[in-house]
Write a protein that binds this DNA or RNA. Structure first.
Lengths: 189, 189
DNA sequence: TCAAATCATTGACATTTATCAAGAGTCATT
DNA sequence: AATGACTCTTGATAAATGTCAATGATTTGA
């Protein structure tokens, strides 16, 4: 598991990071079954997760009990409820495994410690933040400026692996439409 | 203009920042008319803007020529096209003054320089990133999990000043609905 | 491997929201 | 103060999407 983390960090930093062993020790490995929740609404998110293998769904549940997926994350991605994590406050979101997952997680305290003490760690964190923010900005723009059919096409062109990896129901919840509409629109492609 | 910047930084950092004078010099003051564009699609965003006074709209234009507003920014907020700025690549977005504005802007080169050289600067930047990312995550969740009427109510409760400060047309473009729908739904409150 | 549960699809229909058009009101600029 | 350009509202209608129900297919966990 740690090899994947090291490889990821080398890719981002362009070199073997200083104090890698020390930082890596703070990451706890997890093997989880499909359907396992890492976070539920109103819980405080105490960890940042790094995905070695598997897929995580981050979503909210609306007043009718329907899931709205904010994002899916897969191998080599970092996941948390950023606001709740940074402020150690209750979350609005759920985080759940859509597949059996191998993860590494780092606790809030260790995260804060290394952010302040290990420049390479802070640097990676900033890169991830910038990337995550950019992606989320882009997501807002696709949600508001594209209609349902265009969003499906967008996903097929830009994240084709997600289309095959996840159920239509999950994809629909990401695109902001019902599974029925999803089925019908796919017929129009 | 610089007083507003210093005050903002003190508020964020909890102290008078080191090397403030030096950093402040890199910010160029601007006074702009309502309607002025700071960025257009396909242009490379070379600046980060700090709003001393006024309001900026960040939006995209869809295939039918309609504006979809990603965000409005007002006093004491930082604005840029984050992805295009960090990578110095053409933007998808437009940035425009909805009012006469007093701004301070810092160029990409100076920004990179101070990020690397002045810890207090890097620290503020990280705080802004975290906050901006959190807000955008929240925005995705409101867009996908709330219907149009609920989004109007949400905005009135959470950003009442924007409701009075901006035209209905602009508010509608932020909520992802047409001005006509906006009018009709307001009647249902 | 089998039974149970979940999922995808389809049809009929309801609801929400958009579009187009027109008129009255408002605002900015000269 | 007048002009012209927007803006807001309202009505009629169209288009997009959701809801509910039923069926067959697929998946999963014991």
């Amino acid at each position: 598991m740690y090899a994947a983390l090291q490889e990821h960090i080398i890719k981002r930093l362009g070199k073997v990071p200083e104090r890698f062993e020390e930082v890596a020790k703070a990451f706890e490995p997890l093997r989880l079954k499909r359907g396992t929740y890492l976070l539920r609404e109103k819980e405080v998110c105490k960890y940042v997760y790094f995905i070695v293998e598997g897929c995580l769904q981050v979503f909210v549940i609306d007043k009718n009990g329907n899931e709205s997926t904010r994002e899916f994350y897969t191998e080599e991605q970092w996941v948390t409820d950023i606001f709740g994590f940074k402020n150690q406050q209750p979350s609005d979101e759920y985080i759940k495994c859509t597949e059996p997952c191998k993860l590494l997680r780092i606790h809030y305290d260790a995260f804060q410690h290394f952010s302040a003490e290990v420049p390479a760690f802070a640097q990676i964190y900033q890169q991830i933040l910038e990337l995550s923010y950019s992606n989320t900005v882009y997501r807002v723009n696709t949600l508001t400026s594209l209609d349902a059919l265009e969003r499906i096409k967008w996903l097929m062109e830009n994240k084709p692996k997600l289309m095959t990896r996840l159920s239509s129901k999950l994809i629909a919840s990401y695109l902001g439409i019902t599974p029925e509409t999803m089925t019908r629109l796919k017929g129009k492609l």
